[in-house]
């Protein structure tokens, strides 16, 4: 089953490996990102970075929904990882197999971003995607690691 839909612009990194994958007992990661899927070096870096017990699929946004549906009804715990809330929105619109939640983790401070939490900065279009997800009845919340206090999107004034 799909346990978690997480948005994190560092995708697979220390925090994700040490806490999110281990605490969630994740057996498979579906990484949905057009840039990574289209850049073999980048895809290889992330494939190498995951622990050997975890399987990983790196797919484009267009292929994401069918891959998610392929693993949704299986027993293993699956993490769907995206780099920005706009991709999460596209996936939520394209398939009903995802949890009705979006967990936003660290998002770096880029050109034109606004601070949502001390570890998450969002572009205007990313904030707009969070509003649209909320309007669709999907809970959007910020949390870096599993046992941390969650911050609801509805509490963040953006």
């Amino acid at each position: 089953m799909i346990d978690l839909l997480r948005c994190d612009d560092r995708l697979i990194h220390g925090q994700c490996i040490v806490r999110v994958i281990q605490d969630g007992n994740i057996g498979r990661i579906i990484l949905v990102d057009d840039f990574t899927a289209g850049t073999p070096v980048m895809a290889n870096i992330y494939k190498m970075a995951v622990p050997p017990t975890v399987k990983i699929d790196v797919v484009s946004t267009a292929d994401g929904p069918s891959v998610i549906e392929r693993y949704a009804d299986q027993k293993e715990s699956v993490l769907v990882l995206v780099k920005d809330p706009c991709v999460a929105l596209k996936l939520q619109k394209a398939t009903d197999k995802l949890p009705k939640e979006l967990n936003i983790g660290p998002m770096s401070n880029r050109n034109n971003t606004k601070k949502a939490t001390f570890y998450s900065y969002l572009l205007p279009e990313e904030a707009a995607a969070c509003h649209e997800l909320t309007a669709m009845g999907i809970r959007v919340f910020f949390r870096q690691v599993p046992d941390e206090k969650e911050i609801e999107w509805t509490e963040v004034k953006m």
């Binding site: 560092r10 990194h13 220390g14 490996i17 070096v41 980048m42 870096i45 970075a49 995951v50």
Partner: peptide, 16 residues
């Protein structure tokens, strides 16, 4: 500092 983490991922990009 650690295999698989962002510093390593960035260094791997430069390596490639």
């Amino acid at each position: 500092d650690m295999f698989g983490a962002t510093p390593c991922n960035a260094a791997s990009l430069i390596c490639a």
